[in-house]
Amino acid sequence: MRRGWLVSDLATHAHSAHPPGFAHQFEDIEQQREAAHLGMWAFLVTEILFFGGMFTAYIVYRSLHYPAFEIGSHLLEVKFGATNTAVLIFSSLTMAMAIHSAQTGKSKQTVITWLILTMILGATFLGLKLRFEWYEDYVKHIVPGAYFGFENQWGPLGGQVEMFMCFYFFMTGLHAIHMVIGLGILTVLVIMTAKGKFSSEYYAPLEISGLYWHFVDIVWIFLFPLLYLIGGRYIPH
């Protein structure tokens, strides 16, 4: 196989048949797909370290103030955390199915259905979080802000419990912002699919957006045990 293009090739190439979405600088669609994947993973590596900074800070403070973090963790409702984990895992499946249907040349309607299902599940996650968790926390004054304080309840440990709640809100908040951005990306994908931009040859935007969506899922997979399940939930003997 010949590698590289000559100037004379570019002219003929521009008119020759190639799948829509194929960029001329690539040798073939396979190379283009690989480049897109690699680029997206480079971004995700920066995201690992972005969230990693928070996880590192969490690990340090948890090692310093373990008893207070246990108290703080028990203020959270496991049932909502577990439900949301299941919802997010389900949305990862529907996202994988959207890519699968594009890959196997299914109709636009099928791809859009899977994408919209993913969006509904993502919105369900955010809805549950806002209505049953953050709103309830706001009512109970355990949100950093006005009337936030645990000194009356736990004395000297109070400040450290506050620290846990700050970690909880900043980590889940940052995760939720990523979910909202994900919903925006999915909206764009639905429009692109409806316009017929993708084929069984070219669907890289679906794939790399899927990588992002699954990454956000992974962050939650770690947030759930680290925030909701500290020190177990059994009744102490």
Binding site: H37, L38, A42, V45, L49, G52
Partner: peptide, 17 residues
Amino acid sequence: LTRILVLCGFFWLAIMV
């Protein structure tokens, strides 16, 4: 190549922690 990049991400996270 992609696999090495992914491993790099987790390796650097391990360094930080």
